[in-house]
Each structure stands twice: as C-alpha cells, then as structure tokens.
Simulated assay, not measured.
Amino acid sequence: MRIYMQIPAMEDKPPRFYQLMLQKDLVDGWNLIRNWGETGSRGRVKQDHYSDLEQAQTALLRVRDMQLERGYKVMFMQGQELPHE
C-alpha cells in the first residue's frame, strides 16, 4: 500500500511531499515507511516495524490523518484497500 500526499508552495516556502508505504518484511511483520521533504529532493526517511498488518494499517491512517490536518492533500493511493474507519 502506498499513499502520496503534497502540499502546494506557499509564498516563500517550496512545495512539499509526504509518502507512506506499508511493506511486508522478510521475517514476520510489516514496516511503515515514511518519506517526506521538499518536492524534488530525496527527503527524509523513517521506518517503523509492526507485528501485524492491522497495527501497521492503524499507524498509517494515524499518520495520514495528522498530515491531512497540516494541509497535505492525497494525490494518489495504490495497493490494497484500507478498512473503513
């Protein structure tokens, strides 16, 4: 699953992106990978491990909602559907 969000440029600030990805790890569990920064840059990366898919999806939704409150807009979602809230 992947969610890509952007916030437009504002006066003296360049446009920014925030990307969330769920990825099954090789052992047992799921990783929530966050990548964010100015559009056109590599940005920063953070990875959190969760023991099951439900925990990882809950974390993904929580981070997505926090970024939506900050003004980001979802540009596209890819992958499996999330459970309804």
Score class of each variant (00 low, 15 high):
44 R>W: 14
73 K>Q: 08
3 I>C: 14
15 P>F: 12
24 K>T: 15
76 F>T: 01
42 R>Q: 07
29 G>H: 06
53 L>S: 08
82 L>E: 14
36 W>I: 01
39 T>A: 14
28 D>C: 03
23 Q>M: 11
37 G>Q: 04
21 M>I: 09
54 E>V: 09
11 E>T: 02
12 D>G: 01
43 G>H: 04
63 V>P: 07
19 Q>A: 05
31 N>Y: 12
10 M>I: 15
69 E>K: 11
82 L>F: 09
25 D>N: 15
33 I>E: 02
23 Q>A: 10
3 I>L: 14
49 H>K: 11
47 Q>F: 01
13 K>W: 01
29 G>F: 06
70 R>M: 08
77 M>Q: 08
46 K>N: 12
74 V>N: 06
32 L>K: 04
34 R>H: 00
31 N>L: 11
66 M>E: 14
58 T>P: 06
57 Q>T: 08
82 L>V: 12
17 F>N: 08
52 D>T: 13
59 A>Q: 03
49 H>C: 07
69 E>A: 13
21 M>F: 11
66 M>W: 09
16 R>K: 10
53 L>Y: 07
53 L>Q: 14
56 A>F: 01
74 V>T: 04
18 Y>G: 11
9 A>P: 06
19 Q>V: 00
17 F>D: 01
51 S>T: 15
1 M>S: 12
7 I>K: 05
25 D>A: 11
7 I>F: 01
23 Q>W: 09
83 P>C: 06
66 M>I: 10
52 D>Y: 07
28 D>H: 03
63 V>Q: 12
9 A>W: 01
46 K>Y: 09
24 K>H: 14
65 D>Q: 02
69 E>F: 09
18 Y>L: 00
44 R>L: 14
37 G>S: 05
19 Q>D: 11
1 M>L: 13
16 R>Q: 09
81 E>V: 08
19 Q>T: 00
48 D>F: 12
4 Y>S: 06
38 E>A: 03
4 Y>K: 09
27 V>P: 02
27 V>I: 08
46 K>T: 08
44 R>N: 13
20 L>K: 13
60 L>I: 13
41 S>T: 02
27 V>H: 02
85 E>C: 05
58 T>N: 09
70 R>G: 09
63 V>K: 11
10 M>L: 07
36 W>Q: 01
39 T>M: 08
78 Q>R: 15
14 P>E: 07
35 N>Y: 02
15 P>V: 06
70 R>F: 02
46 K>V: 05
46 K>E: 13
52 D>Q: 10
39 T>W: 05
63 V>I: 13
55 Q>C: 05
16 R>N: 10
74 V>E: 05
45 V>Y: 09
21 M>R: 15
33 I>H: 05
9 A>I: 01
75 M>T: 11
63 V>W: 08
72 Y>M: 03
10 M>R: 13
40 G>K: 05
69 E>Q: 13
80 Q>H: 12
